[in-house]
């Protein structure tokens, strides 16, 4: 028994020693840091989020890769928009001329709602929503939002047409944000809901709720 355990331990040690880091480790690190940024930003851990974003950008720059950097800038812009912060994606625009990527350009146009953009170049998650939007079919767009599976994408799409949302979609956004622990997003949608409530009692209740949650 001891011999088996010892052999296993030595094997484990050798395998650990022989573990080789990927040459593009910077890329993984950058992506991981950005994922962490996404979570922390939406959860209102702003200071940690800021540090994560810095790390993510630093790793992307380490690899001298403008594609990753463009993605980071664009994703940051998208997250801002998803929580109601006005963002023109200036950082992305500054480097977009240095790195041409039709998919990213389409996504940028989609974020800024600048026609024309190729819907097919967008992530399949958004394609139906974008088509409805282009056709000015807001009812269809609301339905498309509810069918988006990825929470961050759902929140972003809803934020793009926040003036045209139905109460159901708005409530769904609050639920999604709340379920995922996205405090910043949840507060944004609660404030959005506040604009459309007519009943004073309910309005006061909601204000109090927002104050408590802040």
């Amino acid at each position: 028994m001891i011999k088996i355990l010892l052999s296993f331990f030595i094997l484990f040690l050798f395998s650990a020693c022989s573990f080789k880091q990927a040459p593009n480790e910077w890329q993984y690190k950058s992506v991981n840091a950005f994922d962490s940024y996404t979570k922390n930003f939406l959860s209102s851990y702003d200071k940690i989020a800021k540090a994560d974003l810095k790390r993510s950008i630093a790793h992307a720059k380490q690899g001298v890769d403008l594609k990753t950097l463009s993605q980071i800038y664009l994703a940051k812009c998208a997250l801002n928009i998803s929580v109601g912060i006005k963002d023109e994606c200036k950082e992305f625009q500054e480097i977009s001329s240095l790195h041409k990527d039709p998919n990213l350009d389409a996504y940028f146009a989609f974020l800024q709602q600048k026609d024309p953009y190729d819907v097919d170049k967008l992530d399949p998650l958004y394609q139906k929503f974008a088509s409805k939007l282009k056709a000015n079919d807001y009812k269809g767009a609301n339905e498309a939002i509810l069918n988006i599976s990825k929470p961050t994408s759902k929140l972003l799409a809803a934020a793009l047409i926040r003036d045209r949302l139905t109460t159901t979609t708005r409530d769904e956004m609050i639920s999604t944000a709340s379920f995922n622990g996205y405090k910043k997003s949840a507060l944004f949608w609660l404030n959005e809901k506040l604009l459309y409530i007519k009943d004073d009692t309910e309005k006061e209740r909601l204000i109090k709720k927002i104050e408590v949650l802040k």
Partner: peptide, 20 residues
């Protein structure tokens, strides 16, 4: 260290940033 922690905490390793 944070990078390492991130790498441990992520469910899967992917080389591209996933846009929201």
């Amino acid at each position: 260290i944070m990078d390492k922690v991130d790498a441990f905490m992520q469910d899967d390793s992917k080389p591209e940033v996933s846009l929201p």
